[in-house]
């Protein structure tokens, strides 16, 4: 584990010093500023809009970090053969892959943590400056929603790790990880549409089973989206939080383990 952690630290250091990270931070800060301005266009639900936009910014910046910095951290190792320097040391391929995943996770969480803390600012400003504020807003739910964005980013890190273990091409890894993420965002909606209401009778059994397979294979990203609860101050049950966190843990472990199985047999000529 110590060796995997050394790989994680070097991955994190390389990632955090990348200039793209500063670009992502600037975009996020501009979006936070825009959030404050946009809320002035609304007559009511001002805090709801501020919460929604702030949390979306944190999620967006985390995803940008993973897709544009994280993917590169993996593929550059293989494209430029930096991996020779790492796995010619007493580090197994599994330790390398787990270390890379942890490094990516650390990077996404650092960006998420800093922006998560800053995301409170537009909400505070909306609450202070505008006459109309919602009574049901609660900070604890807001920060639970931020933590669930972290969990979502951890799942995306594991997906990137998995595809990077299979392909040597950064573009392929990027496309496959993005597609998986987008499918994961929509499977729950599609499934509930097809299994309830009038569509349940008209849809073919084949399509229905395909959607079911996709629902179980792809990560259910919408389960981690607590923006609505945060915006309206709706309580999130402990059972819901525990089950979704456990689901994420199992999914991440399975995906990284599958990645190590492929990576162990991979050659670096």
């Amino acid at each position: 584990m110590m060796r995997a952690w050394a790989v994680a630290l070097i991955t994190f250091k390389e990632g955090i010093k990348n200039r793209v990270i500063f670009g992502i931070f600037i975009i996020a800060l501009l979006l936070f500023a825009a959030t404050t301005l946009i809320t002035t266009l609304f007559m009511r639900d001002i805090v709801k809009v501020a919460v929604d936009l702030s949390l979306s910014t944190v999620s967006f910046a985390g995803l940008l970090t993973l897709f544009f910095v994280g993917v590169n951290l993996f593929s550059k190792d293989i494209d430029k053969r930096t991996i020779y320097m790492v796995i010619s040391r007493p580090i197994s391929r599994s330790q390398y892959l787990v270390g890379k995943f942890l490094g990516l996770l650390l990077l996404a969480l650092t960006v998420g943590f800093l922006l998560g803390a800053l995301s409170a600012l537009p909400v505070i400003m909306s609450k202070r400056f505008y006459y109309y504020t919602e009574a049901r807003f609660a900070w604890d739910v807001f920060f639970i929603a931020v933590v669930y964005i972290f969990i979502k980013l951890a799942i995306v890190s594991s997906i990137i790790t998995f595809f990077a273990s299979l392909t040597s091409n950064s573009f392929m890894t990027l496309v496959l990880a993005m597609v998986t993420y987008l499918i994961g965002e929509s499977t729950e909606g599609v499934r509930s549409l097809l299994t309830s209401g009038i569509e349940a009778q008209t849809v073919s059994p084949l399509l229905s089973s395909l959607v079911n397979i996709a629902y179980y294979v792809f990560p259910n990203m919408s389960a981690f989206d607590l923006k609505t609860q945060a915006a309206h101050g709706l309580p999130v049950s402990l059972a819901y939080m525990s089950w979704t966190a456990l689901y994420a843990l199992v999914y991440i472990t399975a995906v990284v383990a599958a990645g190590t199985l492929f990576f162990r047999r991979r050659e670096f000529p």
């Binding site: 070097i10 250091k13 390389e14 430029k80 053969r81 930096t82 320097m85 010619s88």
Partner: peptide
Amino acid sequence: PENPYFYDYLNPMEL
């Protein structure tokens, strides 16, 4: 290795 390539943003101390 032949034509080694290392992490761009790190310095030799970190490596």
